[in-house]
């Protein structure tokens, strides 16, 4: 099961898309309280979103996006039933993706 939650609803003539991803987003600057060792950086570096297969948003992120990232965006000219897909890739090469239909 994918760890991405997407909610896409129509608001006027645009789709309001809200995405929640599950990710620790470690900056690499934090220390482990027990061992005093730096926790290695582990964060999402790229996110892309498509509407019916066409790219609408591509993002590059640094480590300063909050843990379990939230992303909200709007797409004009979308219709109910259109497919919204979101995927991410982190600095370790891990990936995840999910797809929903606009409600």
């Amino acid at each position: 099961m994918s760890d991405i939650k997407i909610r896409a609803t129509m608001a006027g003539d645009s789709a309001d898309i809200k995405v929640l991803m599950n990710h620790p987003m470690e900056t690499g600057q934090r220390k482990d309280a027990k061992t005093g060792q730096l926790i290695p950086a582990h964060f999402i570096q790229s996110v892309s979103a498509t509407l019916n297969g066409k790219p609408v948003l591509t993002a590059q992120w640094g480590a300063a996006i909050s843990k379990n990232p939230f992303l909200g965006f709007k797409v004009k000219g979308a219709k109910a039933g259109d497919k919204v897909a979101v995927s991410w890739e982190d600095n370790t090469g891990a990936k995840d993706s999910a797809e929903v239909a606009v409600a």
């Binding site: 900056t27 066409k54 993002a59 480590a63 909050s66």
Partner: peptide
């Protein structure tokens, strides 16, 4: 630098997120 968002194909000039 926190994040860069590139918009295309009808995406409105709007983004919402949470940062540190």
């Amino acid at each position: 630098l926190i994040a860069q968002f590139d918009l295309a194909n009808g995406a409105e000039p709007f983004v919402s997120t949470r940062i540190k």
